[in-house]
Simulated assay, not measured.
Amino acid sequence: MRQPNRRRRNRKQEGSDQRDRWMITYADLITLLLIFFVVMYAMSRLDTEKYKLVTQSLQATFQSGDSILEMGSGITGTADTENHKNPPPQTAVTEDKEEDNGEAPLTERELAFRAQEEELANFMGLIQQYVKDNQLEEDIFISDEPQGIAITLSDRFLFDVGKAELKSGAAPVLGKLASLFGDLNTTVSIEGHTDNVPIGRHSSYKDNWELSGARAMSVLRFFLEDSKLDPAGFQYAGYADTRPAADNATPEGKQKNRRVEITVLRQLKQ
């Protein structure tokens, strides 16, 4: 008689366990919802400090820049009536504008390089005009290279064949260059170049290395001795035929390779 009672008690316990299982699912759901809302709340929070920085940056950009609309007043604030009638003059220097825009002011060296670029541009314009006015386009070539302003002088009006002594006709051109070099805060490089034809037996130079170096030296001495320029602002070298500007297989190419290159370098004197 005791066995049926036990079965009924077991059935009651199993039924009670099954009815209580929904609480586990409900607890899991509540936990997930709590996590969801915590994540959403965290994502919705604003970093007030970053927000202030962004706002100030935008205000500075719009207020300091030139507005498309006249009498603009930026993204915040209102236009002042007096400013409408008498707009303030825009005479701010470059450094002030950069500080207003949040940029670091230029260093003394950066300002010096910027001034030098203006000098080089002005120098190049003067030489180009001189060449044009004197119809020297066939003998003088000017180009703006990464290392500086390059002035290529053909040997036709500088030297006789196989010689390194300057012709008298070279003085006006070199004198014009000398008059402009004194005002430049940079170094002038003078390089001599030849074609690939070997030096003749009766030449006073051993090879094209000596000839190219002697020609560069002749130009340098004109600047130092005739024009009295500071030696510290010059350097010179001879490269023989190792740096051709054209093909040595043709007479025209050989002629282009016989040259003296004067380069006003993009570098500040120490």
Rank of each mutant, 00 (worst) to 15 (best):
T94W: 12
A42Y: 10
Q63M: 04
L32E: 01
T31M: 05
L32Y: 05
Q129S: 13
Q267K: 15
F159Y: 15
G233L: 07
S44R: 04
E99K: 14
V260L: 06
A237N: 11
R19G: 09
M40S: 08
G162V: 02
Q267M: 13
I127V: 14
P4I: 06
N208H: 05
V188G: 01
D160P: 03
V54R: 07
E119P: 06
T242H: 08
G169H: 05
P244N: 03
S154L: 01
L153I: 05
E210F: 04
P4K: 05
G182Q: 08
Q270Y: 06
K167Q: 15
Q59F: 04
P251E: 01
E137I: 02
L166K: 06
L69H: 04
M1D: 06
Y51H: 12
D183A: 15
A240E: 12
D96Q: 13
D100P: 03
K97D: 06
L136E: 09
N196P: 03
E98C: 00
R109V: 15
T25N: 10
Y41S: 13
E117N: 14
E82T: 10
F123R: 05
V260D: 00
D241I: 00
A240G: 15
A92D: 13
N10F: 07
P87L: 02
L126N: 13
F181Y: 09
N86E: 08
K163N: 12
V188H: 05
L153R: 02
R6E: 10
A214C: 05
L69F: 06
I199V: 15
G74Y: 01
I68L: 08
L180Q: 03
S168W: 07
R266T: 00
S73N: 13
F157Q: 10
F234E: 02
F157N: 11
L106Y: 10
E103S: 07
D47A: 05
K176Y: 13
R6I: 10
L166R: 05
L166Y: 09
I262M: 14
T242D: 13
L184G: 01
I151Q: 06
P231Y: 09
D80L: 00
D47N: 15
S168N: 13
L136Q: 11
D230P: 04
A79L: 07
S212T: 07
K176I: 04
A60I: 02
L229R: 04
Y236N: 12
R11N: 12
T25M: 09
I68A: 09
Y130P: 06
N83H: 09
M23L: 13
N257F: 07
A92K: 13
V131D: 03
Q255L: 10
T78K: 09
E103H: 10
